[in-house]
Design a protein around this nucleic acid. Structure first.
Lengths: 207, 207
DNA sequence: TTGTTTTTAGCACGAACGTGCTTCCACAGC
DNA sequence: GCTGTGGAAGCACGTTCGTGCTAAAAACAA
């Protein structure tokens, strides 16, 4: 048997190098040479684990989706475990929504990478499948959140609209936090989220 | 005097070539050679009007900002000309908000280009100044819209929060329309905007 | 020790990029 | 006519990119 290396761990190290490069220098700088440098490897070594640049990027996209989805699922479980309308549920909801925003270093890197890949997927067909999965996964989480906030509501159409509205607001907040951090501060994000939740409570779906 | 050409018109032609390339192939494909091809010119000719690639991109960013700002200002004027709370004002507001979304070919191109440049500005310092101007301009329009919808309201803080919330929702809708057009249809955009306006009316800023 | 196989490293090629620089061309002014 | 200037085109250089390919190094079974 040859030299044994935890291949999966190596792949994750390379993927994290991709994350760091995208967060600091953008997706277009995430070339094989740059990634290899950042990971402390040679280009040939990176290509041993990823057949091509496209495969590396697609895998990295999937990895960041899994990270985000994992956080969201955990936070959503906490929301659904609390009684509807309670103060505890409100806190859990704010925590869930906060997972979308670049509130700390790790969240910021993931948000950068996530946004970069989603926008790149508009052009690069290799990323389209993961972009689809990303949207489906996150939309499902937000949909379940809206259902948890409107218990007993059966008007499907209105719930879907409210879910899309919340999702759009979250993506917009995330975008502004990344692109205009001096305007969209953490306090402003918090205020906007609070206002949105207030509007959800004030005017329930059923009209 | 040498051969006389309307220099400003030529620059606009080149800029429109940039727009088409960004909308169809992304910003990273907007190289001097691609732009020159799309405009039916040689690289040297493009460089006669724009000293460098950076200058071409920065100028194109400014051009798309001016286009969008022009549409928004016109639509905002129509809103402010109608009596608050009237049906006519409601229609004017919907028209203004629709200017943010890729509802036709021209709006779609501008939205693509706008998003691409804003995201690129996070990394490319040459675009930072225009990104600032873009944000200030659009935020001012949305702010005036919120003021028009809350006449006589003096609570500055709440108004700013509502403006940022509307802006985030609009950017999120625009993003989703560009990235997931099969999910975020024009009808869904319309529904979400209608729901947002309803929430604005139902729970005014003053608590 | 030897042999096998994974891992790591590196070379070389073609393509695309920005850019400095030079070269033609057309036409207004003399 | 001639001349000079602005417009258009293109060459050439260095850099970066992905990728096919080769080869050394390393680690374990025999």
């Amino acid at each position: 048997m040859p030299k044994i290396v935890d291949a999966e761990a190596r792949r994750q190290e390379v993927v994290h190098a991709v994350f760091r490069i995208i967060a600091s220098d953008g997706l277009e700088r995430a070339s094989l040479r740059e990634v290899a440098d950042e990971a402390g490897l040679a280009v040939g070594s990176v290509r041993h684990y990823f057949a091509s640049s496209d495969e590396l990027l697609a895998f990295s996209f999937g990895a960041v989706i899994d990270r985000i989805a994992g956080r969201l699922e955990a936070a959503l479980g906490a929301v659904e475990a609390e009684p509807p309308g309670s103060q505890e549920q409100h806190v859990a909801v704010l925590n869930l929504l906060g997972q979308f925003l670049p509130l700390d270093e790790e969240l910021a890197v993931d948000a950068c990478v996530w946004m970069a890949f989603r926008h790149a997927a508009r052009i690069k067909p290799v990323l389209a499948a993961e972009a689809e999965r990303s949207h489906r996964t996150v939309a499902a989480v937000v949909g379940r959140l809206i259902m948890a906030l409107n218990p007993g509501e059966s008007a499907q159409e209105g719930l879907v609209t409210e879910a899309e509205r919340l999702l759009a607001t979250l993506d917009g907040l995330c975008m502004h936090s990344l692109l205009q951090p001096e305007w969209m501060t953490a306090e402003m994000c918090s205020d906007v989220l609070a206002a949105h939740l207030r509007s959800l409570e004030a005017s329930p779906v059923s009209r």
